[in-house]
Structure formats: structure tokens, C-alpha cells
Design a binder for these strands. Structure first.
Length: 930
RNA sequence: GCCUGCGUGGUGGAAUUGGUAGACACGUUGGACUCAAAAUCCAAUGGUACUUGUACCGUGCCGGUUCAAGUCCGGCCGCAGGCACCA
């Protein structure tokens, strides 16, 4: 085994002493490449197995780009504000800075052991005042431009952590860290208005090369919905309220309204006799934490408040309810409810016995000219004892449900009963429900009909029958059998309606809707909105789900807010020359009674500047503040005049490749886009989108296939152990060879062995004396193929297949006596990005005295990739029966002839007629024979 | 429930744009070297059958398009991640 310890240490020192990877950011003579890793939080436990994966990927690309002549920026730093350091401070009474620095040292040493080409002179730390000065400065700008605000709002409050949390820090009503319960509470809060950027953020997604799933997540998070605001007057008052709806077309089906319990009008419009009930319900809701609200959402609750709204389209008086299924924080906090066409409203209406008016009919078949109209039913009879459905067997041996055309003035119910008795004889039936009508177009005896069909459900009460000679054609089937047997679309749809306790929320044709009748959904929406605008009772409106980003935490270890509350009640933001506002040392780092720890800093809190007195804000910024812009600072990390020089930003942005875990899909990656977009709008960032290409590395699982973690400590892999046992090159090679970068994949100790063996094999080959300054034609094709494949695969981040190609090449070289110097050098360059230490050593052994890092990337000769002769497959009826050697220039008929002469082909075509011979040049021959 | 992605040997995974499924690696088996072992090198390795060359089967399941489907289309099943009363 080669002495990886000695070699790796030698080259680690070489790179450090020679400043090999220092990037001169002012050198604009070469094209730039900015490769970025998501910087880690320096926790006490050091790197885990997943870190080297993403970091090696960017390292490979940045090393290749450097060799291809780019000026590469590949920096690293630390997201060093955070909870573990805070807890350390609370328990020991020491300032968290020392703890943080110790951890950073451990991290840095581990990262250096792995041989990454980071330019450490560019390192940033979010907890460094020189860095957070500019975090505060950007916040200040956001405040001055009205994007950062101090408002009263409901927040996610976590009692155990003693702080407010943002939505993405709350999972299932529990805190992301620690899993403590989170409740809603009204508090005065510093927030950033994210919704103001919603449209720009959505537009930006169009132009970036990101995983589709991440873009989709951000889209959902932003949650744009286009609809209408509609004003409802309240009966017997001069008050009115507005609702938001995406289904303005269903206004004629609105049979009640719902306000959230927190709606400002509720108290003033509740009727006297309902006051008590309403107050009780409101109290109940206020008590509920978010957890309870989501856990109990199965069952709808609410109360009628005794007031009525006037539906603006038909002046109908409809009752107003309050219910916690309407959220105070979305839209206007009030809705119009259309139970026929909204699942939630349907559930509520059924429970509270509110009328359901259908205003759209689903369409089966297509409308034809001169249709005759009629009404009909589909009757479904269910036997609850046997759990079976009644069907009729037709002459064609098909099972159908009972259908019937209604006579004039006959109700659906009567028609259904009549038909069941006539066709089956059963008489003891109980009506369960009539479901939504279906618009059915059909042809019968060459005439076109348009039928309005009502599905009706009955339960069989007893076996009583009027007439039993129908015995032969009826059949009781289980639900599964019924669904399998039914062929008629109308019957299938009718059964589906009856089975599902849902509203009809799809598209259809309008009914019961005056001027909207016969229109489809979208046309009706547009028509209705125009109508509302004309009458002045509504307008087109867009809503976003994205809320304010709560930008303050009641914690110590974060950026202090540059905010002072003055004696006169004004808010003062610190002047530029007062920044950075640094954290004071404290006696006591614990917040008491939900107060921020900085409340304990009595001297620091008091503000007195040029005779102006006030008290400082004691909350600090959230963890994601610094990480929202750190990638800008790397470009010019020591600048104390501005957050980065504009000329440098212009040259280096956007980030060309950003790799990090998918867990940041909506948090960090959205916040960063917001901050950058804000700076772009102000002319302080040159690009709309900061990260041109984003890739998420998959998780590395334990060898048991389960996520590494505290649950199965025996399966946790520490990368430093692997480096000690096998070397950094082996670890890097193995992690890149495991599988596709984005996939989650289990660790395998034997896989590591394999990677180690491959490097050994290479080392032996290079020290075997086979390398000669001679040619070896046997290797020219495979060498050129390898250069091409590796280059392309590195570019597209398919490292596993690049490595497999390198293995194929080495296997081929082992079979040869002569390994030409030229190829040996080229191969070392190809391998260098993956295994930088051993390749530097081999490069030296090949007679070079300078680092390989800037050597030109190997090129390949396209003409050497194609061979004169090629083996292709010959198929008979799609099955491979032989392979033949062909000349690349062979004409089709030559190939055809060759194929037809093959012994095995003759055997398979014997006695058959050859119908067609398909020859795909250079690929395959397929003979169709019968 | 909705959105996104994924289902290929004993294992991790390859497979161009529809054109010889299983590259490469691990594991296993056999051989060489060795007093022996390790390491290394060589060979075999999807399943079944026999005569060792060939046949049949084979990319979650069912169906379709095509000369040809892991790949495209329709319908299921399963797994992973995300969202979840957003009107």
C-alpha cells in the first residue's frame, strides 16, 4: 500500500506554504468561476460523513475549471451564530465566542485534512463583528426602505426555548430544534416583508438552473393565487366585509359566510342571543396551539353568530359563522362558503345542515346540435347487511346500475323508486342522499339527447319484493366487483359521487347562475369578476401564502439589531458610523420569563448619542440573517468601506455552482434570494438571482440504510477516522463513486476498501516502469474516450460514471506492456480533482517540479474515438440472435447481407417470410419475419 | 389528500436521444503466486434448462404505441422527500 499519510501531509504542507489556492479576485484577465459550498455551523462534533460529499463535488469542479484556465473562487467560512454556543454560554457563564472559535479550529483542521482547494484567506464568520457590521447595515437599509417593519402580529412562541420561531422552524406544531410545543401568541415583532418580493421571486425561478423539486417547493411556499375580492354587506347594518375567493364563478352557490374567530367585525355584528356562545368559541380557539389546531382539523367546528350577509349577486341573505378553519392570517380572514364546490365548505355544511346549491355540472360526452333535453336518474341500492350493491345483468352480460328518464313533474326520488320497483321488485328502500347532478350527452336511436342526471342512493331495508320474476337479471355485487364490472361512464361517475364525501370541485358547465349559465369554469370566473368590477362590489385580486419573515429572536448569540427606541416614542436606526453594534459580555446569558438575554445588559441597553436618549432593541437577528448574504462577502471579505466592492461583485457574480443539502430548499435559499433581490433593486448587487446552478447532494446513510445519528451510534461514520485509516484521497474517491450525487446512498466499508485498492493499483502502475516515452496504439482510443467522458461527466457532476471510466482505462493499461508518458500524464490530470494528493505525487514522479493544479486540462482527439470496425447486434423480431462485425462505412445493403448470412439468423428465419429488414447504421439490425 | 422524485442482479449502481439490459465496483466462486496466510494477478458470476452453445424468462404490476420499450403513453401498487384547512 502506498504511504498515503506521508504523501498527503507533504502536499497539504506544500499547498499551504506556496499559497497555491490563493485567488487574486482582481485578476480579470481570465474567465471566472465561482464555486460555493453551503458553509457549516461549527458544532462541537465536527464534520459528519455528509460534509465531504458536497464539498468534494465543488472541489472537483473548481480544480478542473482552474486547469481549464479559469480564475476560480472557492471559499469556505462558518455560520457561527447559533444555539449550541448559546446553551454553552448559559450553562457555563462564559462568552460563546471562545467555544465557537475552538469548534471552528476543529472544523478547519478537518477540512484541511481533506485537501480541499479553499482559499482560506477569504474565510468569513457570521459572528465576527467585521462581518455582522454589514448584516446590520443591510438590515438598516431594509428598514429605511420599509421592508423591515416593527408590527404587532401573531407569532410562533416556544416557551421552552423562550423565543419566537419562524414558520420553517416549526414542524408539526413543534420546534424544529428540540421538538418543544409551539403556540400562537400576539407580539410586537420585527419582520421582513417577504410578500413584497413574491412576484420577483417567482419570476426569478424561471431563469435559474435548480432542481425542479426545489423550485416547486419555493413556488408552493410563495403560494400565489389569483382570484377576486368580493364585498358582502351585512344585513340591517351599514357594515360590510370583504372575502377573497379563487372561485368567483360559484357566487350563486354561496350559502353562508365564515369569518375567522379573530376577525375584527365579529364582536360588533354578533346578535345578542349569540354573544355568549361566540365568546366561548373564541376563547376555545385562542387556547388552542397550532399543534392542536392541525391535529384536530379532522372535524369542523364553528358557531352561527346571528348575523346575515347579503350575497351581492342575488341579494340572498346568508348566515355568517365563525370557525377556525378560516385563518385570520390569510386573505381577508373571511370567506364566502360554497359547499357544493369546496370540500371544506361541504364538510361544514353537512355538519351544520346548511343548504347546498350546485352551480356547476360535470359534463359527460360532448354537446351536439339539436339535442333533446330530458332529466334522468341513476339509482344505487346498497344492502348494508351483505355490503353489496344492486346491479342488473344486461343481454350482453354486462352489469349496469338502474337508470331511468324522469317523467314530467316527477321528482328524482320518485322516479328512482319507480324504476327500482319496476326493474327489480324491491320495495323496502330508504333514501340516503341525492348527489350532484351530471350533464350527460348521448345518442339513442340516432337522436341526440342532453340529460340532467341525478345520482340517488338508497339503502335496502328488507328483502321484500313485489314481483320476483325479475330474479334472473339482478345481481348483487361487492363494491370492488361493482367497480370492476361497470363500463358506462355515467354509471361509474354516479357511483363515484355517491361514494366520495366530497364537493364537486372540478370543471363543468354552470347552472343556477343566471348570466353565467352554460359557461365553463374559467370563462365564468372572468365574466363574474368583470361583473363585480362593473357593479363596484369586487375586483381581481392576487394573494400570496408567504407571510412576514419574523426577524427577531429572544436570544443572545446573534446579530444585535441596530435599533433604538427613543424616549419620545420614535424608533431610531443606528448611524453607519455606530456600526457594528457589538454584543456585550454578560454575567447571565439566560433570558428570564421569555425576555431576551440582552435585557440583562443594563449598561449596553441604555443609548445616549449626541444627547439623544433611548433604549436598545434587545432581540437579536435569526440564524438565517448572516447566511442570507455571506456569498457576497467572500468576494471581498476584508473590505471595511462597503460590504463588497461593486466592481468585484460585477465580475464574480452570480455563483456558478452552489452545492448543499435539500433541507435548505425554502429557508436559506429563499432568504438569500430575497436579500440579493433587494440589493439588486437598489443597484448593490449586479444579478437578479445569486445562484445560477444549484445542486443538492443526497444524504449518506449508515450501512444499515438508515440516517446516521444518535439512534444507531454504531453506524455513524466519522470522516476523520476514514482519513486516518485510508487517506483523504480514498474518502473523496469513495464518496464520489458511491452513486449519483443527488441520491441518498448507504455507506459501505467494503466500498471504501475498493476505492483504496484502486488508488493502490494506480500507484503500483506508475511505479512499475511501464511508463515510457513511446507510443502505444492499443491505448489511443480508450485514452481519448476516457478524457472525453471524464471531462463531460465532471461538468455535469456525474462523478460516479467518470470514476468508472477511469477504472476501465486503468484496467486496459494493466493489460499492456507500455504506458505512454503522454497518457500517463493526461490520466493523472484527470484524476487530480478527485484525488489531489496522490496525483501531485505522481505528477512529481513523472518528472515535474511544480504543482499540477495549474497544468492545462487534457484534450482529446474526436477522430480517434471512432474505430473502423464495430460489433453490432442482429435481431429477429426484436430478439438478439447474433452479433456481426461491420465496417463503419458499410452501406446498408452490405450490412443487411452480412446479417442474413449469420448461422443463427438463418436458423431463426428458416421457413419464415422476411417481411422487412431494418438497418440502423452503426447500431442494430432488426429482421421482421413471419 | 395534494405536489415532486424514485422502483434495474446477492449489494452500490451503469445503460446516449427508444436500438445487444446489468458498464464499473463490492461480494461470491475457481485458478496462479506462497511452506502458509495476507496482498497481488488471471478467470467466471441475472435466473432456469440441458448437450457450454443455445433456448426460455427477466428492469415494481397490468395494458398500449413501435420493426424495437428499463426508456414513450394510460391505469395501478410500493418507497422517499415536501406541503397540509391558504378559500
Amino acid at each position: 500500500m502506498y504511504d498515503f499519510k506521508k504523501i498527503e501531509e507533504k502536499w497539504r504542507n506544500y499547498w499551504q506554504e506556496n499559497n497555491t489556492f490563493y485567488t487574486d479576485v482582481w485578476d480579470f484577465s481570465k474567465p471566472k468561476f465561482y464555486a460555493l459550498d453551503m458553509f457549516p455551523y461549527p458544532s462541537g462534533v465536527g464534520l459528519h460523513a455528509g460534509h465531504p460529499e458536497g464539498y468534494t463535488a465543488t472541489d472537483i469542479v473548481s480544480r478542473m475549471k482552474r486547469m481549464q484556465g479559469y480564475n476560480v473562487l472557492h471559499p469556505m467560512g462558518y455560520d457561527s451564530f447559533g444555539l449550541p454556543a448559546e446553551q454553552y454560554a448559559v450553562t457555563t457563564g462564559n462568552h460563546p465566542n471562545g467555544f465557537t472559535e475552538d469548534n471552528i479550529k476543529i472544523f478547519t483542521n478537518q477540512l484541511k485534512l481533506l485537501g480541499f482547494d479553499y482559499d482560506w484567506s477569504k474565510e468569513v464568520r457570521t459572528s465576527d463583528p467585521k462581518f455582522y457590521k454589514w448584516t446590520q447595515w443591510i438590515f438598516k437599509k431594509l428598514y429605511e426602505d420599509g421592508y423591515a417593519k416593527y408590527i404587532d402580529m401573531p407569532v410562533n412562541w416556544c416557551e421552552e426555548l423562550g423565543t419566537v420561531l419562524s414558520n420553517d422552524e416549526v414542524i408539526d406544531g413543534k420546534s424544529e430544534r428540540g421538538g418543544y410545543p409551539v403556540i400562537r401568541k400576539n407580539m410586537k415583532q420585527w419582520v421582513i416583508d417577504q410578500a413584497a418580493f413574491a412576484e420577483k421571486l417567482l419570476e426569478g425561478l424561471e431563469e435559474i438552473d435548480w432542481p425542479e423539486s426545489t423550485k416547486e417547493m419555493q413556488k408552493n411556499w410563495i403560494g400565489k393565487s389569483i382570484g377576486a375580492g368580493v364585498t358582502f354587506k351585512i344585513k340591517d347594518t351599514n357594515k360590510e366585509f370583504k372575502v377573497f375567493t379563487t372561485r368567483a364563478d360559484t357566487l350563486f352557490g354561496a350559502t353562508y359566510c365564515v369569518m375567522s374567530p379573530e376577525h375584527e367585525l365579529v364582536d360588533s355584528i354578533t346578535s345578542k342571543d349569540k354573544k355568549e356562545e361566540v365568546a366561548a368559541y373564541k376563547k376555545e380557539c385562542a387556547k388552542k396551539s397550532d399543534l392542536e389546531r392541525t391535529e384536530l382539523n379532522k372535524d369542523k367546528t364553528g358557531v352561527f353568530i346571528g348575523a346575515y350577509a347579503i350575497n351581492p349577486v342575488n341579494n340572498d341573505e346568508i348566515p355568517i359563522y365563525i370557525s377556525d378553519y378560516v385563518l385570520a392570517t390569510y386573505g381577508t380572514g373571511a370567506i364566502m362558503a360554497v359547499p357544493a364546490h369546496d370540500d371544506r365548505d361541504y364538510e361544514f355544511a353537512v355538519k351544520f345542515n346548511i343548504p347546498i346549491i350546485q352551480v356547476l355540472e360535470e359534463e359527460i360526452g360532448t354537446a351536439k346540435e339539436s339535442e333533446e333535453k330530458n332529466k334522468a336518474i341513476v339509482a344505487i341500492v346498497y344492502d348494508p347487511k351483505e355490503k353489496k350493491y344492486l346491479t342488473i345483468k344486461t343481454k350482453n352480460n354486462e352489469n349496469v346500475l338502474i337508470d331511468e328518464i324522469r317523467e314530467e313533474n316527477e321528482s328524482a326520488l320518485n322516479c328512482a323508486l319507480r324504476s327500482i320497483i319496476e326493474k327489480t321488485g324491491y320495495t323496502d328502500l330508504k333514501l340516503i342522499e341525492e348527489k350532484f347532478k351530471i350533464s350527460y350527452h348521448y345518442q339513442y336511436n340516432k337522436k341526440n339527447y342532453h340529460s340532467e342526471v341525478t345520482p340517488v342512493l338508497f339503502e335496502l331495508q328488507s328483502e321484500k319484493r313485489k314481483d320476483s320474476n325479475k330474479e334472473n337479471n339482478i345481481e348483487w355485487l361487492s363494491l370492488e366487483e361493482t367497480q370492476k364490472q361497470l363500463k358506462d361512464e355515467l354509471h361509474i361517475k354516479s357511483l363515484e359521487y355517491i361514494l366520495n364525501p366530497n364537493a364537486m370541485s372540478g370543471d363543468g358547465t354552470h347552472i343556477n347562475s343566471e348570466f353565467l349559465n352554460d359557461m365553463k369554469k374559467q370563462e365564468a370566473i372572468d365574466t363574474m369578476i368583470s361583473w363585480l368590477e362593473e357593479k363596484g362590489v369586487g375586483s381581481r385580486q392576487i394573494n400570496y401564502r408567504i407571510r412576514e419573515w419574523i426577524f427577531a429572536r429572544q436570544r443572545y448569540w446573534g446579530e444585535p439589531m441596530p435599533i433604538v427606541y427613543l424616549e419620545n416614542g420614535d424608533i431610531h436606526v443606528l448611524d453607519d458610523d455606530e456600526l457594528p453594534l457589538t454584543l456585550p459580555e454578560l454575567e447571565d446569558y439566560k433570558g428570564h420569563g421569555g425576555k431576551a438575554p440582552l435585557e440583562n445588559a443594563n449598561d449596553w441597553k441604555q443609548y445616549n448619542h449626541n444627547g439623544i436618549k433611548g433604549v436598545r432593541e434587545t432581540s437579536t437577528m435569526p440564524g438565517s440573517a448572516g447566511s442570507s448574504w455571506y456569498f457576497l462577502r467572500y468576494i471581498d471579505p476584508h473590505n471595511d468601506k462597503e460590504f463588497a466592492d461593486q466592481k468585484l461583485l460585477k465580475h464574480w457574480l452570480p455563483v456558478d455552482l452552489y452545492i448543499g443539502g435539500p433541507e435548505h430548499a425554502v429557508g436559506h435559499l429563499l432568504y438569500s434570494r430575497i436579500w440579493n433581490r433587494y440589493l439588486y433593486d437598489k443597484g448593490l448587487s449586479p444579478v437578479k438571482e445569486p445562484f445560477k446552478k444549484l445542486v443538492h447532494q443526497g444524504m449518506i446513510l449508515g450501512s444499515n440504510g438508515i440516517k446516521m445519528g444518535k439512534r444507531y451510534p454504531e453506524f455513524v461514520i466519522n470522516p476523520t477516522d476514514i482519513v486516518n485509516e485510508y487517506g483523504a484521497d480514498t474518502l473523496r474517491l469513495y464518496e464520489m463513486f458511491m452513486g449519483p450525487l443527488e441520491a441518498s446512498k448507504p455507506w459501505s466499508d467494503q466500498g471504501v476498501e475498493g476505492a483504496s485498492k484502486f488508488l493502490d493499483r494506480i500507484y503500483r502502475l506508475y511505479t512499475s516502469g511501464k511508463i515510457k516515452t513511446e507510443e502505444n496504439k492499443n491505448l489511443s482510443k480508450i485514452y481519448n474516450q476516457t478524457v472525453k467522458k471524464v471531462t463531460e461527466d465532471f461538468e455535469t457532476l456525474n462523478f460516479n460514471t467518470a470514476i468508472s471510466q477511469m477504472m476501465i482505462f486503468i484496467n486496459a493499461v494493466y493489460k499492456e506492456e507500455v504506458f505512454p508518458q503522454e497518457y500517463a500524464e493526461g490520466f493523472v490530470k484527470l484524476l487530480n480533482p478527485v484525488a489531489p494528493h496522490i496525483t501531485e505525487e505522481l505528477w512529481e514522479k513523472l518528472g515535474h517540479h511544480k504543482t499540477i493544479a495549474f497544468e492545462p486540462w487534457p484534450t482529446y482527439d474526436e477522430s480517434l474515438l471512432v474505430e473502423a470496425e464495430k460489433e453490432i447486434a442482429v435481431q429477429v423480431n426484436g430478439k438478439v440472435r447474433a452479433t456481426i462485425m461491420i465496417n463503419v462505412n458499410d452501406e446498408e445493403d452490405v450490412i443487411k447481407e452480412k446479417a442474413l448470412q449469420e448461422e443463427n439468423i438463418l436458423r431463426h428465419t428458416a421457413g419464415k417470410e422476411i417481411i422487412k429488414v431494418i438497418v440502423i447504421k452503426g447500431k442494430i439490425v432488426n429482421i421482421v419475419a413471419k
